[in-house]
C-alpha cells in the first residue's frame, strides 16, 4: 500500500502529473468512441438506404 501511495504521490507533483496523463487518456478515449459511433451510424444509414433502393429497383 505504501508503494502505491508513493507512486500516486509522484514525488509531490501529483497535481500536475496525473491531470496531464488523465486528460490525455480522456481526450483520446472520447475521440475514439465518438469516431467509432459516428462511423457505425453513417454506415448503417448508407446500408439502409442501399437496401431500400435495391428493393425499389426490383419492384
Amino acid at each position: 500500500m505504501d508503494g502505491i501511495g508513493r507512486f500516486l504521490e509522484m514525488g509531490g507533483y501529483a497535481a500536475y502529473v496525473w491531470p496531464a496523463l488523465g486528460l490525455t487518456a480522456l481526450v483520446l478515449a472520447v475521440l475514439l468512441i465518438a469516431s467509432v459511433r459516428n462511423a457505425r451510424r453513417r454506415e448503417a444509414e448508407l446500408a439502409q438506404l442501399e437496401a431500400e433502393l435495391g428493393r425499389g429497383d426490383e419492384g
Binding site: 462511423a39 453513417r42 454506415e43 448508407l46
Partner: peptide, 8 residues
C-alpha cells in the same frame, strides 16, 4: 475510421 464515416 473517420474516412470510412465520411465516405459513407
Amino acid at each position: 475510421l473517420r474516412a470510412r464515416a465520411e465516405l459513407a
